[in-house]
Amino acid sequence: MKPPTRRLAGVALLVAAALITIVSRFASKAPDGLTRVATDNGMASAPSHEPLLSYGPATGLVGALVVLLLVSGLMLLLRKGR
């Protein structure tokens, strides 16, 4: 029997929360591919703007919630606008 969509959605949200709060603690701190190439080759970047939040378990969840609300809201608007 197929699990209901709501259960699948719950599992997906739990996995996302686990990635942000648990797995991200073990994430590599090494520079990513672009940063590595930029450093090795002397690409110049401008100073970045001040972040409103810095990445962490709690703020990561806030960011994920913002993404979920924005995309879900956008999809509902698009469906209503058809």
């Binding site: 949200l13 979920l68 924005l70 879900s72």
Partner: peptide
Amino acid sequence: GLCATFVFA
């Protein structure tokens, strides 16, 4: 929305 949340995470 779930897909975007997963990608962000």
